[in-house]
């Protein structure tokens, strides 16, 4: 094969690969919206109706319990995880830790980042059993927060690192303490930090493996933090292969809700990043 043919061939292959991946994306989103959309046309209230008494068998009622479960589990988890993540990221900057310390912590963060979510699920369940408690909403929250923590920390750390040193210098130059300076740096890095929190939220709301054995797989409306609950991904996971078409259709509708939520979150994160970029002296990054 002569070198110009090779050059054309691989140029074509590169284009084809990108096209294939985009085509798959369009297909995944399309199929989800189409199948879920049809369910919503016949039963518009399915996402805001509480489940019937024999929900898993006949699909009576709707899946409001999973919608609420997702919100009650993921929102608090995101709040806890983002506070921890931002704090860790601040500590990782040179004002608080030596390069050696931050290298060690980063190594552990990387391991946590690569840890399969199912391991977090098993870990939290082990704790539940050891504590003699039962699977419930609060443990789902804990599991999701653990899962989100390394993701958000990485985003926040990257954002803080990218913030220009001049902000720090200016702040210290005015006699600010480390903490006051850190707050200023976070402000300068806000677009990246916020994008990280939203991405963490999106990952948390979409994950099933962490909450599968920790939140309780309930088929009723969530009661309190110590009652079993369920989330949209769990609902989809359990109902997608059901033999009952009615039950299966709820999985499609739930996927519709989930994918719209995730797409909206990405959109919001991009818009917010643009909006907050005004505070970032280095312009927008990421």
């Amino acid at each position: 094969m002569d070198r110009y043919t090779e050059q054309r061939l691989f140029g074509l292959l590169a284009r084809a690969s990108a096209a294939l991946i985009l085509a798959v994306l369009v297909m995944v989103v399309g199929v989800t919206l189409w199948r879920g959309g049809r369910v919503f046309i016949t039963d518009p209230a399915v996402a805001v109706t509480p489940p019937g008494s024999r929900y898993m068998l006949d699909g009576g009622g709707g899946f409001l319990h999973a919608v609420l479960g997702s919100i009650f589990i993921v929102v608090p988890a995101t709040v806890v995880a983002s506070i921890l993540a931002i704090s860790t990221a601040i500590f990782l900057q040179s004002d608080y830790s030596s390069e050696r310390t931050s290298d060690v912590i980063n190594m552990f963060l990387n391991v946590l980042w690569g840890t399969p979510p199912i391991v977090y699920g098993v870990f939290v369940l082990t704790i539940i059993i050891a504590a003699g408690a039962q699977t419930s909403l609060i443990f789902g929250t804990i599991a999701i927060a653990i899962f989100q923590y390394p993701i958000m920390t990485r985003y926040a750390d990257e954002a803080l690192r990218a913030a220009p040193d001049t902000v720090k210098e200016a702040s210290y130059g005015l006699g600010a303490t480390r903490f006051e300076t850190a707050r200023m740096t976070v402000r300068a890095a806000l677009p990246g930090v916020i994008a990280g929190i939203i991405m963490g939220f999106a990952r948390g709301i979409g994950d099933a493996a962490t909450v599968l054995f920790t939140a309780g797989r309930s088929t009723q409306m969530p009661g309190g933090p110590f009652d079993p609950a369920t989330t949209l991904p769990i609902l989809i996971f359990e109902q997608a292969a059901s033999f009952n078409a009615e039950v299966r259709s709820h999985a499609y509708a739930a996927s519709f809700v989930l994918i719209i939520t995730v797409l909206a979150l990405i959109l919001v994160s991009k818009l917010l990043a643009g909006k907050f970029a005004r505070f970032a002296p280095g312009g927008r990054h990421s």
Partner: peptide, 24 residues
């Protein structure tokens, strides 16, 4: 456009891939 599409793909929950996998 292509790189934002890749970002979107990265954020789609795997349970949805599973569902579409079952269908397609």
């Amino acid at each position: 456009i292509v790189s934002s599409f890749i970002d979107v793909l990265a954020a789609i929950p795997s349970v949805i891939f599973g569902l579409v996998g079952l269908i397609v």
